[in-house]
Amino acid sequence: MLELRLVQGSLLKKVLEAIRELVTDANFDCSATGFSLQAMDSSHVALVALLLRSEGFEHYRCDRNLSMGMNLNNVSKMLRCAGNNDIITVKADDGSDTVTFMFESPNQDKIADFEMKLMDIDSEHLGIPDAEYQAIVRMPSSEFARICKDLSSIGDTVIISVTKEGVKFSTAGDIGTANIVCRQNKTVDKPEEATIIEMQEPVSLTFALRYMNSFTKATPLSETVTISLSSDLPVVVEYKIAEMGYIRFYLAPKIEE
């Protein structure tokens, strides 16, 4: 028996919107720790890891570990039927081939339940080792989204370089080139508007902008984004989900031929 009640149901709606462009089908894993997902995109270039900790739910019952295969477009269709202020409850019985999403309006005058068929998904689970990163950049998520969008109108790849001067995002295409430098800026009115760079040593890596733009679909989940970079490692683009967990996107770098 599984029963997860999330008062801030809009979080779940935002999570689905954040990942459904990147991943088509995925297993949602439920355990005592929380509600999690790990999935690769169809090209096996990027990986998304989601964790919503059990403590973040108003009610969390998970009698035994359960893995539920879902088509994310179908989940999204169901969750789009929930109001932004609705309380969402996810329910499943052991051994059942369906999951139920229950939506309650804030004043309890409307209750809806949507039952969705589960699917068998044979997915690889990758071990992600802890790594020390050469540079970690924290910046406003909206700023990062804007940079990725702007650069993708010029080129297909972005070179992210971190030096003591700041973080530079560069691209080149048929019509020309673009460079955007963000300097460390801690003296802002609100902490979420700061750009903070922790650099052990300079690093420069190249990534496909298509994936970066897809990661920025998670922007509504968090005001800040953390970008962790090391030579010869996938970049980690992390959006924290307030007091509940995170979405982390891993993207393999491009290398020179």
Partner: peptide, 14 residues
């Protein structure tokens, strides 16, 4: 030109 690496180059399957 650059080559796109795969994610499983970096992370092992469990």
């Amino acid at each position: 030109d650059s080559i796109q690496q795969g994610i499983s180059t970096f992370f092992e399957e469990l």
